[in-house]
C-alpha cells in the first residue's frame, strides 16, 4: 500500500488533556504529524481536530480506531485529499518600500490572491489561503524581495460528503446508539472486510 496524505477529522468532547492523548497515539508509533488543528465544530460543545499525516490507508485506519478508543472521542474519520475541501492560511511579511518601488510585486501578489492585512511604513503583511503548493509558491516569489517572516497555519478541512455531526450526536446521546454511531459501520462495505 502506498503512503499518501490523509486528513483525519476527529469529533471530541472539549476536555483538557485530550490533545495529549491524541498526540501520543501518533508519537508512540513514530508517526510524524504534518499538521494539527483544533477548533469548535458545527455542534455546540463538540470539538473538532483536523490532523494531517502521510501514511498508508492501513495505518491510518488503525490510528483512527486507536483514536476512537479514547473515552472522550466521539468519532474519527479519515479522508484523502480528493474527498475534502481544505485550506491553509499563510502570512508573509515583506518590506513596504520594496513593494512600493517594484510594480511587478503588486502584480505577483494579485496573481496569488494575496490580501494585505497590515500596511505599515516599514513592512506589510499579506495573507493567502489555499493549498500547500499555492502558499509555497508565493514564498519563492517573495524571497527575492526580502521576505522578512513567513508562517503557515494548520490545515482545516471540510469533508465533501459529510452531513455534519448534528444528527450523529443525537445517536451518541442515547444509551444504545444506532448504526450511525457504530464503530463497525465500515462493515457495510463488504469488500473491505472479506478481503482474503
Amino acid at each position: 500500500m502506498l503512503k499518501q496524505e490523509y486528513t483525519i477529522t476527529v469529533y471530541t468532547e472539549n476536555q483538557i488533556g485530550l490533545l495529549n492523548r491524541i498526540a501520543i497515539i501518533f508519537s508512540r508509533r513514530k508517526i510524524n504529524v504534518e499538521s494539527l488543528n483544533t477548533s469548535p465544530s458545527e455542534v455546540d460543545s463538540v470539538h473538532r481536530f483536523t490532523i494531517v499525516i502521510n501514511e498508508t490507508e492501513d495505518v491510518v485506519r488503525k490510528l483512527c480506531r486507536q483514536i476512537e478508543k479514547q473515552v472522550e472521542v466521539l468519532k474519527a474519520y479519515y479522508n484523502t485529499n480528493e474527498e475534502i475541501v481544505w485550506q491553509e492560511l499563510a502570512l508573509y511579511k515583506v518590506p513596504t518600500d520594496i513593494i512600493a518601488a517594484e510594480v511587478k510585486v503588486e502584480r505577483l501578489l494579485r496573481e496569488h490572491g494575496a490580501k494585505a492585512v497590515v500596511i505599515r511604513k516599514d513592512y506589510t503583511v499579506f495573507e493567502v489561503a489555499g493549498h500547500r503548493e499555492e502558499t509555497d509558491n508565493l514564498i519563492k516569489v517573495l524571497e527575492p524581495f526580502g521576505l522578512i517572516e513567513f508562517v503557515r497555519s494548520a490545515r482545516v478541512a471540510i469533508i465533501k460528503d459529510s452531513d455534519g455531526f448534528h444528527e450523529k450526536l443525537k445517536e451518541f446521546e442515547y444509551r444504545e446508539p444506532g448504526e450511525n454511531a457504530a464503530e463497525n459501520e465500515y462493515l457495510n462495505e463488504n469488500e473491505k472486510v472479506f478481503s482474503m
Binding site: R61, K62, R65, Q66, E68, K69, E183, N184, L187, V193, F194, S195, M196
Partner: peptide
C-alpha cells in the same frame, strides 16, 4: 487459515492479524 475474530475492542480487529470475519 480463514480467521474469525471475536473481540469487544474494535481496535483489536485487524490490528495484527487480518480477520476474514470480524465478530465485534
Amino acid at each position: 487459515a480463514k480467521v474469525v475474530h471475536l473481540d469487544i475492542d474494535p481496535a483489536e480487529i485487524d490490528k495484527n492479524v487480518k480477520a476474514t470475519v470480524p465478530v465485534w
